[in-house]
Nucleic acid binder design. Structure first.
Lengths: 238, 238
DNA sequence: AATGGTCTAATGGTAGTACCAATTATATTC
DNA sequence: GAATATAATTGGTACTACCATTAGACCATT
Protein backbone atom coordinates (compact mmCIF):
# COMPACT_ATOMS: atom_id res chain seq x y z
CA UNK A 1 0.00 0.00 0.00
CA UNK A 2 2.28 2.74 -1.20
CA UNK A 3 -0.53 4.78 -2.63
CA UNK A 4 -0.15 7.74 -0.34
CA UNK A 5 -0.93 10.68 -2.52
CA UNK A 6 -0.57 13.95 -0.66
CA UNK A 7 -3.75 15.41 0.77
CA UNK A 8 -4.80 18.50 -1.06
CA UNK A 9 -7.27 20.46 1.02
CA UNK A 10 -9.51 22.54 -1.16
CA UNK A 11 -9.49 26.23 -0.35
CA UNK A 12 -12.83 27.90 0.14
CA UNK A 13 -12.52 30.16 -2.87
CA UNK A 14 -11.84 27.04 -4.94
CA UNK A 15 -14.97 25.45 -3.61
CA UNK A 16 -16.96 28.50 -4.60
CA UNK A 17 -15.40 28.70 -8.05
CA UNK A 18 -16.04 25.03 -8.63
CA UNK A 19 -19.68 25.36 -7.64
CA UNK A 20 -20.10 27.99 -10.30
CA UNK A 21 -18.25 25.82 -12.81
CA UNK A 22 -20.56 22.98 -11.92
CA UNK A 23 -23.63 25.06 -12.59
CA UNK A 24 -22.21 26.02 -15.94
CA UNK A 25 -21.51 22.41 -16.80
CA UNK A 26 -25.04 21.41 -15.79
CA UNK A 27 -26.46 24.14 -17.93
CA UNK A 28 -28.00 25.92 -14.97
CA UNK A 29 -25.92 28.95 -15.77
CA UNK A 30 -25.67 30.04 -19.36
CA UNK A 31 -24.18 32.81 -21.44
CA UNK A 32 -25.57 36.17 -20.36
CA UNK A 33 -26.83 35.01 -16.99
CA UNK A 34 -25.91 37.13 -14.02
CA UNK A 35 -24.56 35.93 -10.72
CA UNK A 36 -25.87 37.43 -7.48
CA UNK A 37 -23.92 40.37 -6.02
CA UNK A 38 -20.75 39.53 -4.16
CA UNK A 39 -22.24 40.40 -0.79
CA UNK A 40 -25.15 38.09 -1.42
CA UNK A 41 -22.94 35.28 -2.62
CA UNK A 42 -20.86 35.60 0.50
CA UNK A 43 -23.96 35.27 2.61
CA UNK A 44 -25.30 32.32 0.63
CA UNK A 45 -22.05 30.42 0.86
CA UNK A 46 -21.54 31.45 4.45
CA UNK A 47 -18.10 32.88 3.69
CA UNK A 48 -16.47 36.26 3.62
CA UNK A 49 -16.75 38.49 0.64
CA UNK A 50 -13.01 38.10 0.30
CA UNK A 51 -13.25 34.45 -0.59
CA UNK A 52 -16.01 35.16 -3.07
CA UNK A 53 -13.94 37.80 -4.77
CA UNK A 54 -10.96 35.47 -5.13
CA UNK A 55 -13.23 32.88 -6.66
CA UNK A 56 -14.63 35.43 -9.08
CA UNK A 57 -11.11 36.54 -9.89
CA UNK A 58 -10.23 32.99 -10.81
CA UNK A 59 -13.32 32.58 -12.96
CA UNK A 60 -12.68 35.90 -14.62
CA UNK A 61 -9.15 34.89 -15.49
CA UNK A 62 -10.51 31.69 -16.97
CA UNK A 63 -12.69 33.75 -19.26
CA UNK A 64 -15.91 32.39 -17.83
CA UNK A 65 -17.30 35.56 -16.31
CA UNK A 66 -16.98 39.24 -16.91
CA UNK A 67 -17.42 41.83 -14.17
CA UNK A 68 -19.19 45.14 -14.43
CA UNK A 69 -19.55 47.85 -11.87
CA UNK A 70 -22.53 50.01 -11.14
CA UNK A 71 -26.20 49.60 -10.46
CA UNK A 72 -26.99 46.90 -12.98
CA UNK A 73 -23.50 45.53 -12.78
CA UNK A 74 -22.37 42.18 -11.49
CA UNK A 75 -20.73 39.01 -12.73
CA UNK A 76 -22.04 37.86 -16.08
CA UNK A 77 -21.41 34.53 -17.74
CA UNK A 78 -19.54 35.21 -20.96
CA UNK A 79 -19.85 33.46 -24.27
CA UNK A 80 -16.57 31.69 -23.66
CA UNK A 81 -14.06 34.25 -24.75
CA UNK A 82 -10.76 32.46 -25.21
CA UNK A 83 -8.57 35.55 -25.21
CA UNK A 84 -7.79 35.08 -21.52
CA UNK A 85 -6.47 31.62 -22.32
CA UNK A 86 -4.27 33.04 -25.04
CA UNK A 87 -2.82 35.44 -22.50
CA UNK A 88 -2.01 32.58 -20.15
CA UNK A 89 -0.30 30.60 -22.86
CA UNK A 90 1.73 33.62 -23.75
CA UNK A 91 2.83 33.98 -20.14
CA UNK A 92 3.89 30.37 -19.95
CA UNK A 93 5.87 30.65 -23.11
CA UNK A 94 7.95 33.41 -21.68
CA UNK A 95 8.68 31.19 -18.71
CA UNK A 96 9.77 28.40 -21.00
CA UNK A 97 12.65 30.38 -22.36
CA UNK A 98 11.35 30.52 -25.88
CA UNK A 99 13.17 32.11 -28.73
CA UNK A 100 11.76 33.85 -31.70
CA UNK A 101 12.74 31.01 -33.98
CA UNK A 102 10.66 28.63 -31.86
CA UNK A 103 7.61 30.76 -32.50
CA UNK A 104 8.12 31.09 -36.20
CA UNK A 105 8.85 27.40 -36.57
CA UNK A 106 5.67 26.50 -34.72
CA UNK A 107 3.71 28.96 -36.73
CA UNK A 108 5.04 27.49 -39.95
CA UNK A 109 3.90 24.01 -38.97
CA UNK A 110 0.56 24.93 -37.56
CA UNK A 111 -0.39 27.32 -40.27
CA UNK A 112 0.38 24.79 -42.95
CA UNK A 113 -2.05 22.45 -41.26
CA UNK A 114 -4.57 25.24 -40.90
CA UNK A 115 -4.46 26.01 -44.59
CA UNK A 116 -5.37 22.45 -45.44
CA UNK A 117 -8.32 22.42 -43.06
CA UNK A 118 -9.46 25.85 -44.15
CA UNK A 119 -9.36 24.76 -47.77
CA UNK A 120 -11.64 21.88 -46.90
CA UNK A 121 -14.03 23.56 -44.51
CA UNK A 122 -13.85 27.31 -45.09
CA UNK A 123 -17.03 29.10 -46.13
CA UNK A 124 -17.41 31.80 -48.73
CA UNK A 125 -17.93 34.28 -45.92
CA UNK A 126 -14.61 33.27 -44.41
CA UNK A 127 -12.86 33.79 -47.71
CA UNK A 128 -14.55 37.14 -48.22
CA UNK A 129 -13.21 38.34 -44.89
CA UNK A 130 -9.73 37.30 -45.91
CA UNK A 131 -10.01 39.14 -49.23
CA UNK A 132 -11.26 42.18 -47.42
CA UNK A 133 -8.24 42.06 -45.14
CA UNK A 134 -5.91 42.01 -48.12
CA UNK A 135 -7.68 45.01 -49.58
CA UNK A 136 -7.22 46.93 -46.38
CA UNK A 137 -3.55 46.05 -46.24
CA UNK A 138 -3.15 47.34 -49.77
CA UNK A 139 -4.74 50.65 -48.87
CA UNK A 140 -2.58 51.07 -45.80
CA UNK A 141 0.53 50.30 -47.80
CA UNK A 142 -0.14 53.31 -49.95
CA UNK A 143 -0.99 55.34 -46.88
CA UNK A 144 2.32 54.26 -45.36
CA UNK A 145 0.67 53.40 -42.04
CA UNK A 146 3.08 50.68 -41.06
CA UNK A 147 1.79 50.10 -37.58
CA UNK A 148 -1.80 49.48 -38.54
CA UNK A 149 -0.59 47.38 -41.43
CA UNK A 150 1.35 45.08 -39.15
CA UNK A 151 -1.76 44.53 -37.06
CA UNK A 152 -3.79 43.71 -40.14
CA UNK A 153 -1.19 41.25 -41.31
CA UNK A 154 -1.45 39.46 -38.01
CA UNK A 155 -5.21 39.56 -38.31
CA UNK A 156 -4.96 37.79 -41.65
CA UNK A 157 -3.50 34.72 -40.04
CA UNK A 158 -6.13 34.70 -37.32
CA UNK A 159 -8.89 35.02 -39.90
CA UNK A 160 -7.38 32.09 -41.71
CA UNK A 161 -7.48 30.06 -38.54
CA UNK A 162 -11.10 31.05 -38.04
CA UNK A 163 -11.86 29.65 -41.48
CA UNK A 164 -11.13 26.21 -40.06
CA UNK A 165 -14.09 26.60 -37.71
CA UNK A 166 -11.89 25.18 -34.98
CA UNK A 167 -11.60 27.48 -31.95
CA UNK A 168 -8.62 25.60 -30.58
CA UNK A 169 -6.62 26.37 -33.69
CA UNK A 170 -7.79 29.96 -33.52
CA UNK A 171 -6.63 30.12 -29.94
CA UNK A 172 -3.19 28.83 -30.78
CA UNK A 173 -2.77 31.08 -33.75
CA UNK A 174 -3.79 34.10 -31.71
CA UNK A 175 -1.29 33.15 -29.07
CA UNK A 176 1.50 32.87 -31.59
CA UNK A 177 0.55 36.15 -33.21
CA UNK A 178 0.47 37.93 -29.86
CA UNK A 179 3.86 36.50 -29.07
CA UNK A 180 5.29 37.66 -32.37
CA UNK A 181 3.86 41.11 -31.88
CA UNK A 182 5.15 41.56 -28.37
CA UNK A 183 8.56 40.07 -28.98
CA UNK A 184 9.12 41.67 -32.20
CA UNK A 185 7.23 44.81 -32.94
CA UNK A 186 10.06 46.69 -34.67
CA UNK A 187 10.72 44.37 -37.57
CA UNK A 188 7.61 44.93 -39.63
CA UNK A 189 9.77 44.68 -42.67
CA UNK A 190 8.22 41.38 -43.60
CA UNK A 191 5.89 43.15 -45.92
CA UNK A 192 6.98 44.42 -49.21
CA UNK A 193 4.58 44.74 -52.07
CA UNK A 194 5.23 41.09 -52.86
CA UNK A 195 3.15 39.86 -49.99
CA UNK A 196 -0.04 41.21 -51.45
CA UNK A 197 0.52 39.39 -54.70
CA UNK A 198 1.36 36.25 -52.81
CA UNK A 199 -1.80 36.53 -50.75
CA UNK A 200 -3.94 37.01 -53.84
CA UNK A 201 -2.47 33.90 -55.41
CA UNK A 202 -3.03 32.12 -52.14
CA UNK A 203 -6.69 33.10 -51.98
CA UNK A 204 -7.30 31.93 -55.53
CA UNK A 205 -6.00 28.51 -54.58
CA UNK A 206 -7.93 28.49 -51.34
CA UNK A 207 -11.25 29.32 -52.96
CA UNK A 208 -10.67 26.49 -55.42
CA UNK A 209 -10.05 24.19 -52.43
CA UNK A 210 -6.60 23.37 -53.75
CA UNK A 211 -5.18 22.61 -50.34
CA UNK A 212 -1.67 21.47 -51.23
CA UNK A 213 -0.73 24.33 -53.56
CA UNK A 214 -2.24 26.85 -51.17
CA UNK A 215 -0.27 25.40 -48.31
CA UNK A 216 2.85 25.54 -50.44
CA UNK A 217 2.31 29.18 -51.25
CA UNK A 218 1.88 30.02 -47.57
CA UNK A 219 4.73 27.81 -46.50
CA UNK A 220 7.07 29.51 -48.91
CA UNK A 221 6.31 32.89 -47.41
CA UNK A 222 6.54 31.74 -43.81
CA UNK A 223 9.76 29.84 -44.41
CA UNK A 224 11.42 32.99 -45.64
CA UNK A 225 10.27 34.78 -42.53
CA UNK A 226 11.45 31.98 -40.31
CA UNK A 227 14.88 32.03 -41.90
CA UNK A 228 15.04 35.78 -41.59
CA UNK A 229 14.17 35.78 -37.90
CA UNK A 230 16.38 32.84 -37.10
CA UNK A 231 19.35 34.74 -38.42
CA UNK A 232 18.44 38.07 -36.91
CA UNK A 233 18.15 36.72 -33.42
CA UNK A 234 21.44 34.83 -33.30
CA UNK A 235 24.03 37.27 -34.53
CA UNK A 236 26.91 35.30 -33.06
CA UNK A 237 26.12 31.93 -34.54
CA UNK A 238 28.44 32.27 -37.50
CA UNK B 1 -9.91 62.19 -34.44
CA UNK B 2 -12.34 59.40 -33.71
CA UNK B 3 -9.77 57.34 -31.90
CA UNK B 4 -11.56 57.31 -28.59
CA UNK B 5 -10.78 53.90 -27.26
CA UNK B 6 -12.53 53.25 -23.95
CA UNK B 7 -10.46 54.23 -20.97
CA UNK B 8 -10.41 50.78 -19.36
CA UNK B 9 -8.98 51.79 -16.04
CA UNK B 10 -6.54 49.16 -14.94
CA UNK B 11 -7.47 47.69 -11.60
CA UNK B 12 -4.77 47.72 -8.97
CA UNK B 13 -4.49 43.97 -8.78
CA UNK B 14 -3.94 43.95 -12.54
CA UNK B 15 -1.15 46.46 -12.18
CA UNK B 16 0.50 44.27 -9.58
CA UNK B 17 0.07 41.10 -11.61
CA UNK B 18 1.47 42.79 -14.69
CA UNK B 19 4.51 43.99 -12.81
CA UNK B 20 5.27 40.43 -11.85
CA UNK B 21 4.68 39.29 -15.42
CA UNK B 22 7.06 41.94 -16.60
CA UNK B 23 9.77 40.73 -14.27
CA UNK B 24 9.28 37.23 -15.55
CA UNK B 25 9.49 38.38 -19.14
CA UNK B 26 12.65 40.31 -18.42
CA UNK B 27 14.17 37.28 -16.79
CA UNK B 28 14.44 39.00 -13.42
CA UNK B 29 12.22 36.32 -11.95
CA UNK B 30 12.92 32.77 -12.87
CA UNK B 31 11.66 29.31 -12.09
CA UNK B 32 12.04 28.54 -8.41
CA UNK B 33 12.41 32.15 -7.30
CA UNK B 34 10.27 33.26 -4.42
CA UNK B 35 8.22 36.41 -4.19
CA UNK B 36 8.19 38.42 -0.98
CA UNK B 37 5.42 37.65 1.51
CA UNK B 38 2.01 39.12 0.78
CA UNK B 39 2.20 41.61 3.60
CA UNK B 40 5.53 42.86 2.36
CA UNK B 41 4.33 43.10 -1.24
CA UNK B 42 1.35 45.10 -0.10
CA UNK B 43 3.67 47.52 1.63
CA UNK B 44 6.03 47.77 -1.33
CA UNK B 45 3.24 48.49 -3.78
CA UNK B 46 1.47 50.75 -1.34
CA UNK B 47 -1.74 48.78 -1.61
CA UNK B 48 -3.83 46.56 0.57
CA UNK B 49 -3.01 42.94 1.06
CA UNK B 50 -6.31 42.23 -0.61
CA UNK B 51 -5.20 43.60 -3.93
CA UNK B 52 -1.98 41.65 -3.70
CA UNK B 53 -3.87 38.46 -3.05
CA UNK B 54 -6.13 38.96 -6.03
CA UNK B 55 -3.10 39.56 -8.19
CA UNK B 56 -1.48 36.38 -6.89
CA UNK B 57 -4.72 34.52 -7.47
CA UNK B 58 -4.67 35.63 -11.07
CA UNK B 59 -1.05 34.63 -11.53
CA UNK B 60 -1.71 31.32 -9.87
CA UNK B 61 -4.57 30.60 -12.21
CA UNK B 62 -2.32 31.44 -15.11
CA UNK B 63 0.08 28.77 -13.92
CA UNK B 64 2.90 31.21 -13.33
CA UNK B 65 3.19 30.91 -9.57
CA UNK B 66 2.42 28.31 -6.99
CA UNK B 67 1.53 29.17 -3.41
CA UNK B 68 2.69 27.36 -0.30
CA UNK B 69 1.65 27.93 3.24
CA UNK B 70 3.73 27.75 6.33
CA UNK B 71 7.06 28.95 7.58
CA UNK B 72 9.11 28.67 4.40
CA UNK B 73 6.04 29.17 2.25
CA UNK B 74 5.29 31.93 -0.19
CA UNK B 75 4.69 32.43 -3.88
CA UNK B 76 7.15 30.54 -6.07
CA UNK B 77 7.64 30.90 -9.78
CA UNK B 78 6.72 27.59 -11.37
CA UNK B 79 8.34 25.79 -14.26
CA UNK B 80 5.42 26.68 -16.47
CA UNK B 81 2.76 24.19 -15.60
CA UNK B 82 0.22 24.21 -18.42
CA UNK B 83 -2.48 22.39 -16.52
CA UNK B 84 -4.07 25.70 -15.61
CA UNK B 85 -4.41 26.56 -19.26
CA UNK B 86 -5.86 23.16 -19.93
CA UNK B 87 -8.33 23.74 -17.13
CA UNK B 88 -9.41 26.99 -18.73
CA UNK B 89 -9.86 25.33 -22.08
CA UNK B 90 -11.91 22.66 -20.41
CA UNK B 91 -14.14 25.34 -18.95
CA UNK B 92 -14.59 26.80 -22.39
CA UNK B 93 -15.58 23.41 -23.69
CA UNK B 94 -18.41 23.27 -21.21
CA UNK B 95 -19.52 26.73 -22.19
CA UNK B 96 -19.90 25.42 -25.70
CA UNK B 97 -16.99 27.27 -27.19
CA UNK B 98 -14.96 24.17 -27.85
CA UNK B 99 -15.89 20.63 -28.77
CA UNK B 100 -13.92 17.48 -28.27
CA UNK B 101 -13.56 17.02 -31.99
CA UNK B 102 -11.88 20.42 -32.16
CA UNK B 103 -9.27 19.20 -29.72
CA UNK B 104 -8.56 15.95 -31.49
CA UNK B 105 -8.44 17.67 -34.85
CA UNK B 106 -5.92 20.17 -33.54
CA UNK B 107 -3.89 17.45 -32.01
CA UNK B 108 -3.82 15.60 -35.29
CA UNK B 109 -2.51 18.65 -37.11
CA UNK B 110 0.04 19.65 -34.55
CA UNK B 111 1.37 16.20 -33.94
CA UNK B 112 1.84 15.57 -37.63
CA UNK B 113 3.93 18.68 -37.76
CA UNK B 114 5.80 17.64 -34.66
CA UNK B 115 6.72 14.29 -36.13
CA UNK B 116 8.32 15.94 -39.12
CA UNK B 117 10.39 18.27 -37.01
CA UNK B 118 11.33 15.54 -34.55
CA UNK B 119 12.48 13.37 -37.42
CA UNK B 120 14.77 16.15 -38.54
CA UNK B 121 16.06 17.40 -35.22
CA UNK B 122 15.55 14.68 -32.62
CA UNK B 123 18.61 13.34 -30.84
CA UNK B 124 19.40 9.75 -30.02
CA UNK B 125 18.67 10.51 -26.39
CA UNK B 126 15.20 11.75 -27.35
CA UNK B 127 14.51 8.57 -29.26
CA UNK B 128 15.78 6.43 -26.40
CA UNK B 129 13.34 8.07 -24.06
CA UNK B 130 10.52 7.32 -26.46
CA UNK B 131 11.55 3.68 -26.73
CA UNK B 132 11.75 3.45 -22.99
CA UNK B 133 8.22 4.79 -22.75
CA UNK B 134 6.96 2.11 -25.11
CA UNK B 135 8.66 -0.55 -23.02
CA UNK B 136 6.94 0.72 -19.90
CA UNK B 137 3.58 0.73 -21.61
CA UNK B 138 4.13 -2.85 -22.65
CA UNK B 139 4.87 -3.88 -19.08
CA UNK B 140 1.82 -2.12 -17.74
CA UNK B 141 -0.38 -3.74 -20.36
CA UNK B 142 0.52 -7.11 -18.96
CA UNK B 143 0.03 -5.79 -15.45
CA UNK B 144 -3.38 -4.51 -16.45
CA UNK B 145 -2.75 -1.16 -14.84
CA UNK B 146 -4.93 0.84 -17.17
CA UNK B 147 -4.72 4.12 -15.34
CA UNK B 148 -0.97 4.33 -15.29
CA UNK B 149 -0.92 3.16 -18.87
CA UNK B 150 -3.12 6.01 -20.00
CA UNK B 151 -0.77 8.48 -18.36
CA UNK B 152 2.22 6.93 -20.07
CA UNK B 153 0.49 7.08 -23.41
CA UNK B 154 -0.04 10.78 -22.94
CA UNK B 155 3.57 11.10 -21.89
CA UNK B 156 4.63 9.56 -25.18
CA UNK B 157 3.19 12.42 -27.15
CA UNK B 158 4.82 14.97 -24.88
CA UNK B 159 8.18 13.24 -25.23
CA UNK B 160 7.73 13.35 -28.95
CA UNK B 161 7.10 17.07 -28.77
CA UNK B 162 10.21 17.48 -26.66
CA UNK B 163 12.21 15.79 -29.40
CA UNK B 164 11.57 18.84 -31.55
CA UNK B 165 13.52 20.95 -29.08
CA UNK B 166 10.82 23.57 -29.46
CA UNK B 167 9.23 24.62 -26.14
CA UNK B 168 6.27 26.20 -27.89
CA UNK B 169 5.27 22.92 -29.42
CA UNK B 170 5.87 21.15 -26.13
CA UNK B 171 3.55 23.51 -24.32
CA UNK B 172 0.81 23.14 -26.89
CA UNK B 173 1.02 19.39 -26.86
CA UNK B 174 1.02 19.25 -23.07
CA UNK B 175 -2.01 21.49 -22.94
CA UNK B 176 -3.94 19.33 -25.36
CA UNK B 177 -2.93 16.17 -23.53
CA UNK B 178 -4.00 17.58 -20.16
CA UNK B 179 -7.27 18.59 -21.68
CA UNK B 180 -7.88 15.20 -23.24
CA UNK B 181 -7.06 13.46 -20.02
CA UNK B 182 -9.42 15.50 -17.88
CA UNK B 183 -12.28 15.52 -20.30
CA UNK B 184 -12.06 12.05 -21.27
CA UNK B 185 -10.63 9.82 -18.65
CA UNK B 186 -13.10 6.92 -19.04
CA UNK B 187 -12.47 6.12 -22.68
CA UNK B 188 -8.98 4.73 -22.43
CA UNK B 189 -10.02 2.16 -24.94
CA UNK B 190 -7.67 3.68 -27.48
CA UNK B 191 -5.06 1.20 -26.52
CA UNK B 192 -5.20 -2.31 -27.68
CA UNK B 193 -2.10 -4.33 -28.22
CA UNK B 194 -1.91 -2.89 -31.71
CA UNK B 195 -0.70 0.44 -30.50
CA UNK B 196 2.57 -0.96 -29.28
CA UNK B 197 3.33 -2.50 -32.63
CA UNK B 198 2.38 0.74 -34.33
CA UNK B 199 4.66 2.68 -32.04
CA UNK B 200 7.59 0.35 -32.71
CA UNK B 201 7.13 0.77 -36.43
CA UNK B 202 6.88 4.49 -35.88
CA UNK B 203 10.13 4.60 -33.94
CA UNK B 204 11.96 2.66 -36.63
CA UNK B 205 10.93 5.25 -39.17
CA UNK B 206 11.73 8.12 -36.85
CA UNK B 207 15.23 6.91 -36.11
CA UNK B 208 15.84 6.61 -39.84
CA UNK B 209 14.67 10.22 -40.21
CA UNK B 210 11.94 9.10 -42.58
CA UNK B 211 9.65 11.96 -41.73
CA UNK B 212 6.79 11.39 -44.14
CA UNK B 213 6.24 7.68 -43.45
CA UNK B 214 6.55 8.27 -39.72
CA UNK B 215 4.01 11.06 -39.90
CA UNK B 216 1.72 8.80 -41.88
CA UNK B 217 1.96 6.08 -39.28
CA UNK B 218 1.09 8.50 -36.52
CA UNK B 219 -1.59 10.22 -38.54
CA UNK B 220 -3.30 6.92 -39.19
CA UNK B 221 -3.55 6.21 -35.50
CA UNK B 222 -4.73 9.69 -34.54
CA UNK B 223 -7.25 9.85 -37.34
CA UNK B 224 -8.93 6.76 -36.03
CA UNK B 225 -9.10 8.33 -32.58
CA UNK B 226 -10.45 11.57 -33.99
CA UNK B 227 -13.19 9.71 -35.83
CA UNK B 228 -14.02 7.73 -32.74
CA UNK B 229 -14.37 10.80 -30.54
CA UNK B 230 -16.22 12.79 -33.15
CA UNK B 231 -18.88 10.11 -33.27
CA UNK B 232 -19.06 9.48 -29.56
CA UNK B 233 -19.76 13.09 -28.77
CA UNK B 234 -22.64 13.57 -31.19
CA UNK B 235 -24.96 10.67 -30.56
CA UNK B 236 -27.92 12.31 -32.26
CA UNK B 237 -26.28 13.30 -35.50
CA UNK B 238 -27.41 10.29 -37.50
C1' DA C 1 20.51 7.24 19.18
C1' DA C 2 16.09 7.57 17.46
C1' DT C 3 11.66 8.74 17.73
C1' DG C 4 8.00 11.62 18.90
C1' DG C 5 6.11 15.76 21.19
C1' DT C 6 5.93 20.76 22.03
C1' DC C 7 6.77 25.34 21.24
C1' DT C 8 7.60 29.28 18.21
C1' DA C 9 7.85 32.03 14.17
C1' DA C 10 6.56 32.69 9.44
C1' DT C 11 3.11 32.88 6.00
C1' DG C 12 -0.92 31.95 3.32
C1' DG C 13 -6.20 31.68 4.16
C1' DT C 14 -10.45 33.65 5.96
C1' DA C 15 -13.52 36.99 8.16
C1' DG C 16 -15.61 41.40 8.88
C1' DT C 17 -16.12 46.24 8.43
C1' DA C 18 -15.82 50.55 6.33
C1' DC C 19 -15.42 53.34 2.52
C1' DC C 20 -14.46 54.66 -2.54
C1' DA C 21 -15.88 54.76 -7.51
C1' DA C 22 -18.68 53.92 -11.24
C1' DT C 23 -23.14 53.27 -13.09
C1' DT C 24 -28.05 53.21 -13.41
C1' DA C 25 -32.52 54.74 -12.02
C1' DT C 26 -35.26 58.23 -10.11
C1' DA C 27 -36.68 62.50 -8.57
C1' DT C 28 -36.25 67.50 -9.07
C1' DT C 29 -35.86 71.76 -11.14
C1' DC C 30 -36.07 74.93 -14.73
C1' DG D 1 -39.91 67.99 -21.65
C1' DA D 2 -35.04 68.28 -21.07
C1' DA D 3 -31.33 69.01 -18.22
C1' DT D 4 -29.65 68.25 -13.67
C1' DA D 5 -29.15 66.86 -9.08
C1' DT D 6 -29.91 62.83 -5.91
C1' DA D 7 -30.09 58.21 -4.41
C1' DA D 8 -29.34 53.30 -4.73
C1' DT D 9 -26.71 49.44 -6.40
C1' DT D 10 -22.52 47.03 -7.01
C1' DG D 11 -17.72 46.08 -7.88
C1' DG D 12 -12.95 47.86 -6.09
C1' DT D 13 -9.89 48.94 -2.24
C1' DA D 14 -8.25 49.34 2.45
C1' DC D 15 -7.47 47.86 7.06
C1' DT D 16 -7.57 44.89 10.96
C1' DA D 17 -7.86 40.72 13.34
C1' DC D 18 -7.52 35.99 13.62
C1' DC D 19 -7.10 31.03 11.94
C1' DA D 20 -4.41 27.07 9.87
C1' DT D 21 -0.47 25.08 8.19
C1' DT D 22 4.31 24.47 7.82
C1' DA D 23 9.38 24.37 9.08
C1' DG D 24 12.62 24.50 12.42
C1' DA D 25 14.38 24.27 17.09
C1' DC D 26 14.32 22.29 21.25
C1' DC D 27 13.02 18.89 24.63
C1' DA D 28 11.30 14.32 26.43
C1' DT D 29 10.67 9.62 26.17
C1' DT D 30 12.04 5.20 24.90
Amino acid sequence: MDDFTPVRTERTFEIIANKVREQIRDGKLRTGDKLPPERELAQQFGTSRNAVREALRSLEHAGLISLHKGAHGGAFITDGDPSAVAQSMEDLMYLGGIELADVTESRLSIETAIVEIAAAKGTTADFDRLDQNIDQVEELTQARDMDAKADLNMEFHVLLAEATGNPVLVLMMRTLMDLLRSVHRPITAEDTVDIIKSRRRFMDLLRNREAAPAAAEMKDHLSRLHDLFSRSEMPNSG
